[in-house]
Design a protein around this nucleic acid. Sequence first.
DNA 1: ACCTGAACACCGTTCAAGT
DNA 2: ACCTGAACACCGTTCAAGT
Lengths: 242, 242
Amino acid sequence: MATRSRRPDRRQEPLSRERIVEAAVELLDSVGESGLTFRALADRLATGPGAIYWHIAGKAELLTAATDAVVAAAVRPAEPGGAPGDGVRTVALGLFDAVEEHPWLAAQLAAQLSRSPWGTVAPRIFESIGREVRALGVPEAGWFTATSALMHYILGSAGQNAANTASAAAPGAGMERAEFLDAVSTAWEGLDPDAYPFTRAVAEQVRGHDDREQFLDGIALVLAGIVALHPPVAQPAVTVVR
Amino acid sequence: MATRSRRPDRRQEPLSRERIVEAAVELLDSVGESGLTFRALADRLATGPGAIYWHIAGKAELLTAATDAVVAAAVRPAEPGGAPGDGVRTVALGLFDAVEEHPWLAAQLAAQLSRSPWGTVAPRIFESIGREVRALGVPEAGWFTATSALMHYILGSAGQNAANTASAAAPGAGMERAEFLDAVSTAWEGLDPDAYPFTRAVAEQVRGHDDREQFLDGIALVLAGIVALHPPVAQPAVTVVR
DNA sequence: ACCTGAACACCGTTCAAGT
DNA sequence: ACCTGAACACCGTTCAAGT
């Protein structure tokens, strides 16, 4: 009768970096970033805190590895063919969904992109979006700007959306998503009319909207900008054939 | 002969929320987020850790207040008149510079936007960008999408740029900014050609670029998207006159 | 080679006691 | 009303000791 937590005792498989990262993701998903503790992790793995250090250098590396694992699973390549922009939308929605499923991901990505852009996680995201930009026929001179703009919009927007979902589902909040958006909208409408005229005017639009739809509206906007500033050239046949 | 840290003893003015937040920002700027400690803060204010709690509820509120103070100072309204888009660029560069001056700001903003969009910091940023969007003549139906796209691009891009600056200046790195970008570029060129063809191709463009110029390229791209999807209507005379 | 678990240094927060 | 500083609970990390 182990009383301290789920998954009490059994452990025939030895510890491994993979198993540790998997448990870390589960912990992050269920109790959030503040709940990811070496002691809690050790409990869940039926071992002591020190054992983890044999496989992982420290907490920073653990968070990096957890983020990378989730991102790697999220960026499945879009299948070729389809209307222009379909590939971008597929990749964008993959990241959007991943952030929604793992609300801690948004803050982690921001922290890691804005700390070590040379890590493994930044190139992974950049590459998956960039391929779709290239498939769009954007000339090479526009690749960096176009891909950056898409990436920042996707991650920022997904993060804000996950905030809504997470806050609505927060323990004790007991709110439906619509209720929550309603609350935000009402809060915005209560702002000082002199200082926040614009935000107040927009508050009503926030109330009833569909997130994915609004997210895709933003993608469409950035895509329109890409097409306007970097008119697509004919695509190499390879992209279409294979 | 106080030996523990700078600003050793004198304190005639009483403690106040304002003074505490100011000291917190200084600490964040000089030693980063991990250096912001109630004990270090108390030292700097020549008091004990407990005293701070009389004025501020806890660390979360302290970080929120520090972020808000810096953002409030950064979003000076752009002066009316000027070419279309000038206002957007002014506000964007204000935020860009703030993030560069306070490298901890990027992660804080991401964390706070993706946690409490009803706080004071989100509407402040949203409002300052939104006003410029409205001044652009964008019809109301496009306000939310256009402002969101700009905001996410600005904050994401500024954060990534600050990362470069901060990493280059990190203690022990002793790198110039150009050197650092060169290192990132070289790292990207060393990626697996099969898995990262796009990122490798772009690596060269990263090497010699000017940050602000590249940042403004992205702003131009988003602006082009806004104009394409939400063609400006005639602006109300008020905007021009006053 | 891999794991155990006590121990260390440090942190956010509380609170009885002061002024 | 405001400040002091010891104390508490908790955390990341280390490391001598085990297998």
